[in-house]
Amino acid sequence: MTGFRQCAFGAVATVMVVCGLLGTTAQAQQQPAVQSRVNALPPALRAAVLSGNMQGIQAAINSLSGGNPQQAATLAASVVSAAEQLLTINPQAAIQAAGAAVEAVQATSVQTTAPGQTATVLTTAARIFIAPEVLRVAPLDAANVAARAVATATTNNVPAITANISAQAVVLAERILTVAPSAAVQLAGSAVQAVQSQAVQTTAPAQTLAVVTGAARVAVTTAAQNAAPQGVAALSVAVVQIVSNPVVYQAAPQAAIGAMANAYAAATSQTVTSTVTTVAAQVTTILSQAQNSAALSASNSANPRQLNAILSRAMPTTGTETNTTAANNAAANNANANANNNNNQPSVSSTFQSNIFSSSPS
């Protein structure tokens, strides 16, 4: 019996050793594959990407491109592609590289010369800034990159790309709401502003609606209203204006009604109205007009009744759900990144802190 146990133990040990060797071999094979795009970068650019220094990456792109916009776009596309491969092993470096790539294609000369590569950079950067790996370690960096991507997409003037990037940005805004509510409101505002264009609404009504419904879910939360009441007021007005467009409304009438309900609840909350006294009247006027719109009723026969319920405060609202545990973990993971910030409220870059809309809702 003792011999049998020894044999069995020896067999198990052998299997464990073999499995361990196989696992080590698999990891060794996977590592070069993960970094293949990184290794394909020019040495100076590769070093900058691996360092996770956005300014260093930008400097390397500028130096290597020599002022050639086509070359700058090519390098930016290579950088953001490499960044996506870094997500699983170094998400902090990945989001910094994505930000540098977006910066590289912001120039009008680059967008005009290489529109396809500009679009590739923006869509890949969007996949990076909403990645869970990035959200865990650098939510504010993700918000900054998202804001830059939205701004670049807007100047790129391709409605479908603008709608797509804006929709991803609102997804991120909802995800960072508990960790950084002020940043979430600003990012949602940037996305909503980007889809205010009639060309965007006509080209991509479903994505436009996704943007405003997500923004309205942010606006209706107490966290958003306490952190940025003026931003919430601006969001509320913009949401009801956009969703009242028949082209957008008919993409999903019940989602549109939900966005209107959330925007009205946000605009009439005590926190918001005490800061922007005219916002409730503005939103009420827009919704009253929507209630009597024949075009909206053509898409949804219940529109007058549902708008009446909203204005009578009988329509339930749905805010962005928050997970306290997840938020606390994200905040803890992000503590080192914000070590130099002396304020209790997380901050964003000066570009990101600019006004959401060109004029006040009042």
Score class of each variant (00 low, 15 high):
Gln70Trp: 08
Gln70His: 09
Gln70Phe: 11
Gln71Ile: 12
Gln71Thr: 14
Gln71Gly: 06
Ala73Ser: 10
Thr74Asn: 15
Leu75Ile: 13
Leu75Pro: 04
Ala76Val: 02
Ala77Tyr: 07
Ala77Gly: 02
Ser78Cys: 10
Ser78His: 13
Val79Trp: 11
Val79Thr: 08
Val80Leu: 11
Ser81Gln: 15
Ala82Leu: 06
Ala83Ser: 04
Ala83Gly: 02
Ala83Tyr: 07
Ala83Ile: 11
Glu84Cys: 06
Glu84Tyr: 14
Gln85Leu: 07
Leu86Asn: 03
Leu86Ile: 05
Leu86Met: 15
Leu87Gln: 01
Leu87Val: 02
Leu87Tyr: 06
Thr88Glu: 08
Thr88Trp: 07
Ile89Lys: 09
Ile89Met: 12
Pro91Leu: 13
Gln92Pro: 09
Ala93Val: 01
Ala94Met: 10
Ile95Glu: 03
Ile95Phe: 14
Gln96Val: 07
Gln96Ser: 10
Ala97Asp: 07
Ala97Gly: 02
Ala97Leu: 06
Ala97Pro: 04
Gly99Val: 03
Gly99Asn: 03
Ala100Val: 09
Val102Thr: 04
Val102Pro: 01
Val102Leu: 06
Glu103Ile: 05
Glu103Gln: 11
Ala104Gly: 13
Val105Tyr: 02
Val105Arg: 02
Val105Cys: 00
Val105Gln: 01
Val105Ala: 02
Val105Asp: 03
Gln106Thr: 09
Gln106Leu: 07
Ala107His: 15
Ala107Phe: 14
Ala107Asn: 04
Ala107Met: 14
Thr108Asp: 10
Ser109Arg: 08
Val110Gly: 04
Val110Trp: 08
Gly116Cys: 13
Gly116Val: 15
Gln117Asn: 06
Gln117Met: 07
Gln117Ile: 07
Thr118Ser: 02
Ala119Leu: 15
Thr120Asn: 07
Val121Gln: 05
Val121Gly: 03
Val121Pro: 00
Leu122Phe: 09
Thr123Leu: 09
Thr124Arg: 01
Ala126Glu: 01
Arg127Val: 07
Ile128Cys: 00
Ile128Ser: 00
Phe129Asp: 02
Ile130Val: 07
Ile130Pro: 00
Ile130Asp: 00
Val134Tyr: 03
Leu135Phe: 05
Leu135Ala: 04
Arg136Glu: 14
Arg136Gly: 06
Val137Ser: 03
Val137Lys: 03
Ala138Leu: 12
Pro139Cys: 00
Pro139Gly: 00
Leu140Arg: 15
Asp141Ala: 11
Asp141His: 11
Ala142Pro: 01
Ala142Asp: 01
Ala143Cys: 14
Ala143Phe: 12
Val145Gly: 00
Val145Tyr: 15
Val145Cys: 10
Ala146Asp: 00
Ala146Leu: 02
Ala146Ser: 00
Ala147Lys: 03
Arg148Thr: 08
Ala149Met: 05
Ala151Arg: 05
Ala151Met: 11
Ala151Thr: 11
Ala151Trp: 10
Thr152His: 11
Ala153His: 11
Ala153Cys: 07
Ala153Asn: 06
Thr155Tyr: 09
Asn156Ala: 11
Asn156Arg: 11
Asn156Ser: 10
Asn157Thr: 08
Val158Leu: 08
Val158His: 09
Val158Asn: 12
Pro159Ala: 05
Ala160Cys: 04
Ile161Phe: 12
Ile161Arg: 03
Ile161Tyr: 09
Thr162Met: 12
Ala163Ser: 01
Asn164Gly: 05
Ile165Ser: 00
Ser166His: 12
Ser166Trp: 10
Ser166Gln: 09
Ser166Asn: 13
Ser166Pro: 01
